[in-house]
């Protein structure tokens, strides 16, 4: 596969390390009343869609960016690649 890195251009997927669903960005609030339930869902439950999937890849053999890649799990077609940090900020994550 080829991942079109937003800063570096097309790169072979072998340069990257895969983590999983981009929902891993949405780490729950540790002080919420139902923190345990939330962390259980965050840590363990997955949509695992057959189709478009937003997922985290890390450019370990490159610039060490974490990327959010939108890829179809049926065809492997990649339709978007974003810097994970931008996605995280857009989702309201801070310090």
């Amino acid at each position: 596969m080829i991942i079109n890195h937003p800063l570096l251009g097309p790169r072979d997927a072998a340069e990257f390390v895969y983590l999983g669903d981009a929902s891993l960005i949405d780490r729950p609030d540790w002080q919420a009343d139902d923190a345990m339930e939330q962390f259980h869902a965050y840590g363990y439950l997955r949509e695992n869609p057959a189709g478009e999937h937003k997922e985290l890849w890390y450019h370990e053999q490159g610039d060490r960016s974490w990327l959010v890649v939108t890829r179809n799990t049926l065809t492997h077609e990649i339709t978007a690649v974003e810097l994970a940090r931008d996605v995280a900020r857009a989702r309201g994550r801070d310090k």
């Binding site: 780490r27 974490w66 994970a84 995280a88 900020r89 994550r93 310090k95």
Partner: peptide, 19 residues
């Protein structure tokens, strides 16, 4: 060594991106 570094980058870029 490699794995921890990767995890720290994840925490830095994805969990607490404004640090």
């Amino acid at each position: 060594a490699v794995l921890v570094f990767r995890r720290l980058e994840f925490a830095r870029q994805c969990l607490w991106p404004n640090m």
